[in-house]
């Protein structure tokens, strides 16, 4: 067992290994907190915490292909941190987290609807969250899919700002995303 795995949060006991520490920005200071319970970690933890903390992503991709994270990171500017999740609701959670940190995402790219009933669910939820959190500028949401939208979803998308639907050939969603995304962030 490595030395780091023995370190745990003094509040909840969560092992403080890679990805379980969050950085919280308060004015000009960066503090470390437990990713599970939010307990503020002592400044003595900062060096270790910074090394172990998961960077706040700028771009979240919803895809079943987790290898996209590495492929996309290579084709984008190094300052753009990419995180790939499998469910659209996971992307929503990350967006809420980044709003709390006041470093909102640049975009969400969706290639699968996961367990959601509709493609539009993630878009509606993101816009409602933004409205509730008084976010002035809506975050762009890009969909890459070969699916056909029904009339209800189309009308929902038409009512929402900054929603982009990119049709792709069947089973080419990830490939199209890899081709298009560098152009979006160039």
């Amino acid at each position: 067992m490595s030395a780091t795995s023995r370190i745990s949060c003094p509040m909840c006991g969560q092992p403080l290994d890679r990805g379980s520490i969050e950085e919280v920005f308060i004015e000009f200071s960066t503090l470390n907190s437990c990713g599970r319970c939010g307990f503020g970690l002592d400044l003595r933890w900062r060096g270790r915490g910074s090394a172990l903390s998961r960077p706040t992503p700028n771009l979240v991709v919803v895809s079943t292909e987790l290898a996209l994270e590495e492929q996309l990171s290579e084709s984008l500017n190094a300052s753009i941190k990419v995180e790939v999740v499998k469910e659209p609701t996971d992307a929503l959670g990350i967006y809420a987290k980044t709003l709390r940190k006041e470093v909102p995402l640049s975009a969400i790219l969706v290639t699968t609807r996961g367990q959601s009933q509709r493609w539009s669910d993630i878009a509606v939820a993101v816009r409602a969250l933004e409205e509730g959190f008084k976010v002035a500028t809506p975050m762009p949401i890009w969909f890459f899919s070969s699916a056909e939208l029904n009339q209800i979803e189309l009308s929902i998308f038409e009512d929402l700002a900054d929603i982009y639907w990119r049709e792709t050939p069947v089973n080419q969603e990830n490939q199209t995303l890899l081709e298009v995304t560098p152009q979006l962030f160039s």
């Binding site: 319970c37 609701t89 959670g93 987290k97 709390r100 539009s120 509606v124 969250l129 929902i156």
Partner: peptide, 20 residues
């Protein structure tokens, strides 16, 4: 309308998870 009950709950729980 817009998002059904199940979608609402899923979204709410995701937001709560994100905000701890």
């Amino acid at each position: 309308a817009q998002i059904d009950v199940q979608g609402c709950i899923e979204a709410l729980r995701a937001i709560e998870r994100g905000l701890n």
